[in-house]
């Protein structure tokens, strides 16, 4: 820590911690091994505060704040987990599940999907909201990668990595509301993109199986069958 950076002290979950003045609550929490669930945030990319999973309670403020974009303040008292936060987080994950077709058992990312593992960590055993499941296109036109809109949680990580790190800005979001989707250039097949450098960064940052590497699907699916009972549960509920 360089001497001219000011240090702030605050409390997270009752524990006294110190932080640099420009740090977010999330990064301080992580340094102190306090877990806050996140999806849209990724170290190295701009934080946008979109998924709302990292919401925390701050003493003296009626509003919940997203830990990934809220900077620390002297004397702040943060609560990262409470019954209320836990139930909100579970519902948020559920909403992500009902918005698109996330049937993990047929997903290439089954087993290393951040959405799936968060759901498990938060103890989600069934989805009680009605499913929406629009039928969306899968783009397999790129020779190495594929894009399946049905798995996309619109965290925007791919858009940011492509713009901020690779500098290509091949991806962006189109439309709005729940109809918004990731688009490649002018909403054209990925394989026909003139801007894509095929670097594959978007595929690596994608938390789910929306962006994937071709040819890897079957092997990974067969490796992780222990998740199946859990997923069948989810699907079973849908047919109720």
């Amino acid at each position: 820590m360089s001497p001219n950076v000011r240090v702030k002290t605050l409390k997270i979950d009752g524990k006294d911690v110190s932080a640099r003045e420009d740090q977010t609550i999330l990064s301080v929490a992580r340094e102190n091994d306090i877990f806050i669930p996140t999806l849209c945030q990724m170290d190295g990319l701009t934080s946008v505060g979109a998924c709302r999973l990292c919401l925390v309670e701050i003493k003296g403020s009626a509003k919940l704040q997203a830990a990934c974009v809220t900077e620390v303040q002297e004397g702040m008292e943060v609560v990262t987990d409470s019954e209320r936060l836990h139930s909100y987080r579970k519902m948020l994950i559920e909403l992500l599940f009902v918005a698109r077709n996330h049937i993990c058992s047929v997903c290439v990312s089954n087993g290393h999907c951040e959405l799936q593992s968060l759901a498990q960590r938060l103890g989600i055993t069934h989805i009680h909201f009605p499913f929406r499941y629009p039928k969306l296109a899968v783009d397999l036109s790129h020779d190495r990668f594929g894009m399946d809109n049905n798995r996309c949680i619109r965290c925007g990580r791919c858009v940011r990595v492509c713009d901020e790190i690779e500098g290509a800005h091949t991806w962006d979001l189109m439309g709005r509301g729940d109809a918004s989707q990731i688009v490649c250039d002018l909403n054209q097949p990925w394989g026909s993109s003139e801007t894509c450098t095929s670097c594959g960064k978007c595929v690596h940052v994608c938390p789910t199986g929306a962006l994937f590497e071709k040819g890897k699907s079957s092997s990974e699916m067969s490796k992780r069958q222990e998740f199946l009972p859990y997923l069948t549960l989810m699907r079973g509920d849908h047919n109720e």
């Binding site: 709302r52 949680i153 979001l173 709005r176 509301g177 729940d178």
Partner: peptide, 18 residues
């Protein structure tokens, strides 16, 4: 609200639709 939601954050995007 659901059609005017910008679609950035989860609760508003999916919550209003549900």
């Amino acid at each position: 609200s659901r059609s005017e939601s910008c679609g950035k954050c989860t609760p508003c995007r999916v919550g209003t639709a549900v």
